[in-house]
Amino acid sequence: MNRILVCDDDKEIVEAIEIYLQQEGYEVLKAYDGKEALKILGEEEVDLLVMDVMMPYLDGIRATLQIRKSSSIPIIMLSAKSEDSDKILGLNIGADDYLTKPFNPLELVARVKSQLRRYTKLGNASGNSSVVYQTGGLLLNDDLKEVTVDGEPVKLTPIEYNILLLLMKNQGKVYSISEIYKSIWNAEAIGADNTVAVHIRHIREKIEINPKEPRYIKVVWGVGYKVDKV
């Protein structure tokens, strides 16, 4: 059983998160400011930390900096600040994920699961096959024609699989719709349809926790699609 520390200065939020996580079978520890969180982390064994940014005494940013000095425990940040710069700051100083308030509780649970799987299982997953492409928690094994996200297998249609394979093989490269069309269907794009875009959306819906904020398949608007190296 995994132990999760939830830290937020709003007691009701902590309690709600506790209920959701307990339903999934996690043990929940509670803290109401950064100092308290640090104290619990020092005393107890904790597998994952969910922490708010704006808190009294010690805010989430400083607490994360402190924790990162000695521990690589997964940290999911919660914040009412929704600016890109706030997210980037949070991720840069060592948080593993960033969720803006108000969040969908099921999304939080999904992200907690994802982080825990990666933390506990993923370390030895790769390496036994030669044609494995990986970015973050996304793994594509071309020998087995298998795709897993944080260890969980995902079912894709052949076209979806081929599109993902193309993007995973050339991580960081942006493919336009017509380029994808050409390489998957081996034909010139006739234009005037959304086929590729629809497939991409379907892939995102299968492999992303929140398809609107994709982690793996990124849209470069007006240019194309890409999978980023992580």
């Binding site: 009412a80 969040f103 509780p105």
Partner: peptide
């Protein structure tokens, strides 16, 4: 103001869902 609204809104959404 948005930040201040978002915190209680989080609780509302969460508990409605509960």
């Amino acid at each position: 103001v948005s930040h201040d609204i978002k915190t209680p809104l989080t609780s509302i959404i969460n508990y409605v869902h509960l």
